[in-house]
Design a protein around this nucleic acid. Structure first.
Lengths: 252, 252
DNA sequence: CGTTGCGTTGAGAGGCTTCAACCTAGGTGG
DNA sequence: CCACCTAGGTTGAAGCCTCTCAACGCAACG
């Protein structure tokens, strides 16, 4: 056991675990004690990864399934000219594709924004746990569907929202996703992402991201400084972005 | 049995079936006779759907798993203002999300471009076949991964390609996907999609789609008339779009 | 033969990009 | 301890890619 995550099993309470995998699963299903323990266990040996390093490179043969326990990472694709598109943010509790071992090679890369704690889980281990705990299996399947729903929402975001709306929508989505796993504090959360990286996320230039952020600040909606984002007026931010969180499929 | 698809089992040959589900699966795995027969069977009772009608509405409780056997359909999301973003094209052999029954309500709609033949398969039926035919299970899982990879590629497309490149990339992708399921004829295929719908797909205005299509024609790369798209110069079209088909994970 | 949906064209405007310079803070080495 | 260096944030100016608005043509259809 390389690292200990959160309190001991004995002190855990339903939906207040500090293990992000458990927190996320409990947003979709209700876990009984045995399943919670099993989820703690699969978070087994943890690896520390520095900020701005590759976890997976495009063209790699997939290894095990990736789980993010702490920090923030992202999926990306590159154009030959050097342009980069970030296609997903991975926050604590998120997993790489469950069936990724079925593919010959990765069609995209995964890298870290911040220093991260991650776990690589062997496909056999995972399928064993899924078989013995149907409720975990169910939570993981729902998680996969939500990942897909987020991709669709991002297509919508880039395809038909203005610059300021795209950023507002991203910030709303991250706030909700991080609240679920206990990584938001009030309406604030760590956002270790540079403006250039926000640009690669939203399909904008870094210059225009900068100006749009200023506009969001000027309107009193957010503050973003020192890698911490604070949402001052969530209702207004949601209205601006037309953020409807249904696609995240979080239980009420 | 509401409708008969393709030749009888006796006349089928490997990878020349006219059943698009079989064709697509054989792009990922090699099916033995029994598995091919099972796939023919799940294509069971077929429903005819008119063009431009909804198969699934946002907010619906999901019913069974959708399979497209003929025609072309699309996933979409709407903004309150009326703007629409098309997030995926469904071509013969494509299926809706396998686990969609786990969700309370749909976060997007599905509608037809053209008249379609579709099948609704009960989740129990599907999981039965997946259990008794691991190779089919494997093919379906890979198919799901490819669906996700396509979503990522579309984010890339809208996020960092120019108008003409976006259209070129879409046409390249569709050519390859339709070739796999035997719905392309040489470098031509049916594309029952209006310019306004192409605009909702690519995040452009219909006016600009029109002008970009003219430019593609002027360069001698494609022809698009009467709902048929012909690619005159696939290498040049690929080069223009920087189309790298790896994300479709088709066997060589 | 009017209606309707779709493709086409023109003109003007604007959101966003590009290029380039400058500023600031944090880290590093002499 | 300061001087330098670098990454990232900020600002200005110019331009263009794409949008909006509006009109028109054309073919299919009842």
């Amino acid at each position: 056991m390389a690292f200990s995550i959160g309190p001991t099993v004995a002190t855990m309470q339903a939906s207040t675990s500090t293990n992000p995998l458990v927190r996320k699963a409990e947003a979709f299903v209700s876990l009984h004690e045995g399943a919670r323990i099993a989820m703690e266990v699969i978070s087994g040996p943890v690896t520390d990864i520095a900020a701005h390093s590759d976890l997976v490179r495009e063209g790699d043969k997939p290894r095990g399934v990736l789980m993010i326990l702490n920090g923030m990472a992202y999926r990306y694709k590159k154009r030959t000219g050097g342009a980069r598109q970030i296609t997903a943010y991975l926050v604590p509790g998120d997993m790489g594709d469950l069936d990724v071992a079925l593919l010959e090679r990765m069609d995209h890369g995964i890298a870290t924004f911040s220093a991260c704690k991650v776990a690589w889980i062997k496909p056999e281990t995972l399928s064993g746990i899924r078989q013995s705990h149907p409720v975990i299996d169910r939570a993981l399947r729902i998680g996969t569907l939500v990942d897909e729903a987020i991709l669709q929402e991002w297509i919508m975001n880039i395809g038909c929202r203005s610059a300021i709306e795209r950023l507002a929508h991203l910030f709303c989505e991250l706030l909700m996703r991080l609240q679920v796993v206990g990584r938001a504090f009030g309406n604030s959360y760590a956002l270790p992402v540079s403006q250039a990286e926000l640009a690669d996320t939203t399909g904008l230039s870094n210059v225009h991201v900068n100006r749009s952020l200023q506009e969001l600040r000027r309107r009193g909606l957010i503050r973003l400084s020192g890698k911490v984002l604070t949402v001052f007026d969530f209702p207004a931010l949601k209205a601006l972005a037309e953020f409807r969180p249904g696609y995240l499929h979080l239980a009420k």
